[in-house]
Design a protein around this nucleic acid. Sequence first.
DNA 1: TGGAAACAGTTGAAGCTTAAACCATATTTC
DNA 2: GAAATATGGTTTAAGCTTCAACTGTTTCCA
Lengths: 164, 164
Amino acid sequence: MAPMAAGDEDVRWLDAEEQAMWRHLLTAESRIEEELDRDLQTRNGIGLVEFGILVALSEAPGMRMRMRMLADSVIVSKSRLSHQITRLERSGYVRREPCEEDRRGFWAILTDDGLVVLREAAKGHVARVRERVFDRLTREQVRQLAGIMRTLEPDEAPAGPAGH
Amino acid sequence: MAPMAAGDEDVRWLDAEEQAMWRHLLTAESRIEEELDRDLQTRNGIGLVEFGILVALSEAPGMRMRMRMLADSVIVSKSRLSHQITRLERSGYVRREPCEEDRRGFWAILTDDGLVVLREAAKGHVARVRERVFDRLTREQVRQLAGIMRTLEPDEAPAGPAGH
DNA sequence: TGGAAACAGTTGAAGCTTAAACCATATTTC
DNA sequence: GAAATATGGTTTAAGCTTCAACTGTTTCCA
């Protein structure tokens, strides 16, 4: 068997079926995200990421989360989250509070205004998601998609070579 | 039946199964894209969008495309494409040429250097796509996903109200 | 023919994201 | 228990994206 160098020669290219699937996946995804983002933006003045942040906070105990955990939960870098929270703070939807237990840390806390905006945004958003995604799929397809995405979610490799 | 105003009240929220699916979809997608982008970026110095542009050009007759068509094909705004092409031009991977038939227009043309970079990048990229996506799915799942994404791809609504 | 409107594309400024450096506090480790 | 290292988070600058305005065709249509 050939050594697995990084820029290896003999590449297993995608066959026709795989290629078609990959293209559909990329374009469908990008269109959906774009539409949902624009919809939220124009209707509620927040983007998809901001919405995600508000959702995460609203579901956390005390409607608050530590920056790090929040960053992981919405999958953005620490830095980006920090900027994002600064903006949300400026809009009055979130506020920061220093953490007593670990004095390096900060809480991001959903404000009352933030909750109101979130509630309002969520209504329109879920309607959009329905008409753009769920209404076009059968129950069976939803189930299939859930299974597929669950296996694709983790970012680790499927198995380490020679697991100790 | 209630009038379908924009911010309608009685919202059909997602049930548990739908919600789980939606979350998996969002996070899986975002992780995959992030990894592939970073991989291309560090290994070949181009991002996923730039890669997409080079691919599109390489497959077009004469390895050239009009700006507008290219923008549609990789799903970015005219403006963003223009900036992007400017950068790719600076890197020497693409060049512009005025269009004779329609003098408003420009061709974006893949250069020899661009083709070299694309070839090199493609090898690593397809390997990553395989190990991150296809290797984790069964043939059957790939087929299912293709069907699902094909129905989700178009951005028009499923049907107009009272189609005339 | 002569606009009016649409289209292809660019541009510049403002806003957002990323990357790297940085500060302060916790945690290890010897 | 002191130094080394790791962690939580912010900050600054550079790079990228978006938005709106703009130029120069082309098309429409009366």
